[in-house]
Amino acid sequence: MEDLFLLAGLLLILTSFLSLYRAIHGPGIFNRIIAVNVIGTKTILLLVLIGFIYGRPHFLDIALVYALLNFIMTIAATKY
C-alpha cells in the first residue's frame, strides 16, 4: 500500500510540472490563474499522501489550511 501512495505522489508531482507549463507559457492572465489553482488542488492531495506515507496525521491540518488558502487566493486574484 505504501508503494501505491509513493507512486501516487510521484504522479502528482509530474502532473504539477505539466500544469506549470500552462502557468508559465499560457496566453493571458486567466490561464495562469487556473493553472495555479489546479497546482494548489494537487498540492492538497500531495500533503495528505505525505501524511499517510510518513504516518504523521498532523499533515492533514496543513492540508485543510492549504485548501482554505487556495480557495481564498483564487477568489482574491479574480477580484482584480
Binding site: 486567466f30 489553482n37 492538497i44 492533514l60 477580484k79
Partner: peptide, 27 residues
C-alpha cells in the same frame, strides 16, 4: 483522521466549482 478527511472532501466539492465560476466570471 477519517472525519477530517471527510471535511476536506466536502470543502473541495463546494469550493472548487465556486472558484471555477469566479475565474470564468472574471474572464
Amino acid at each position: 483522521i477519517s472525519v477530517k478527511l471527510l471535511f476536506l472532501v466536502v470543502f473541495i466539492f463546494v469550493a472548487n466549482p465556486v472558484a471555477t465560476h469566479a475565474i470564468a466570471r472574471a474572464a
